[in-house]
Design a protein around this nucleic acid. Structure first.
Length: 279
DNA sequence: ATGTCGAAATCGTTTCGA
């Protein structure tokens, strides 16, 4: 089962790139962020015409997330209120459309667009930290239900020095501060794995290159788009890759897709002992 | 060089967010 995440930076502007990529790679599920379109204007038919179902949670101009899937999409939940119905304070966060989840192949797929946070100490930065605290509670509830978890999206956080092109200059700043990292590590908390790091330990693997400063041409990137899996999925994961080809297209998104290939549902073990006994 | 995008309103140029 091939699952992917891609911050497309406007689905309407990137429609041709996304459709071409789906046709070429044929993932089972693609989770997208920054769709930047209100629900009635989402180009749903464009995906249905090529064999994909879509569920979206969008708004005009900013944010917006969607799940595009060849497999049936069940039990869709949007916003924090989709899980944390008991808490009136979650209303503060519902104005920004940043989280959608669904059950696909009995995996709870949670697609997030974590706030950027602007700059340390700003109102947006505090909003980001608080948003992450709500995400932790959200994941806690799902963990308690026992569903296999695939948490993926644009986290706007580089976890380690090797996830940034110039750690000596960027560490401590926005997307690389101690507080952001500790909130994200708290969510992961021995129950989820950043699967890209199961296969690759080196630096210089980026998922985002700023449009400014010729970042792509100079390969000055960050790895801020992640896929986190719970243990039963990790055990069956075959590979995890970043497809940076898309970043070199004309009018690209500033982010590249990240993909994971999971043997799911896992094949039954050959019960050789029983077969042996039958003979 | 905070050097570029995408979207919307303040509309044919400026603003905001990233």
């Amino acid at each position: 089962m091939l699952i992917a995440t891609w911050n497309v930076n406007s689905i309407r502007t990137r429609l041709d790139h996304v459709k071409s990529w789906l046709k070429a790679i044929k993932p089972d599920v693609l989770c997208i962020q920054e769709t930047k379109v209100d629900n009635p204007l989402f180009p749903k038919n464009e995906f249905e015409d090529i064999g994909y179902e879509v569920r979206f949670f969008g708004q005009k101009a900013y944010n917006g997330v969607a799940i595009i899937s060849k497999l049936p999409i069940d039990d869709v939940r949007t916003g924090f209120c989709g899980e944390l119905k008991d808490d009136s304070e979650t209303d503060i966060f519902e104005a920004q459309k940043r989280i959608i989840s669904a059950l696909i192949n009995n995996i709870r797929i949670i697609n997030v667009y974590v706030p950027n946070g602007s700059a340390l100490g700003t109102e947006k930065y505090h909003y980001k930290l608080k948003w992450l605290k709500y995400l932790k509670r959200y994941i806690d509830l799902i963990e308690n239900r026992g569903e296999p978890i695939c948490l993926l999206g644009d986290f706007n956080i580089a976890l380690e020095s090797k996830d940034i092109h110039s750690p000596e200059r960027l560490t401590g700043g926005i997307m690389a501060s101690e507080l952001e990292r500790s909130e994200l590590k708290g969510i992961i908390n021995n129950r989820l794995q950043d699967v890209f790091r199961l296969f690759e330990q080196d630096t210089n693997h980026w998922s985002w290159w700023d449009y400014r400063s010729g970042a792509w041409d100079r390969d000055k990137g960050w790895r801020i788009d992640h896929i986190y899996l719970s243990e039963e999925l990790v055990e069956n994961t075959k590979s995890c890759l970043i497809d940076k080809n898309t970043r070199g297209l004309i009018k690209p998104s500033d982010h590249a897709p990240v993909l994971v290939d999971i043997n799911w549902p896992p094949l039954e073990e050959e019960s050789s002992e029983i077969e042996f006994l039958e003979y």
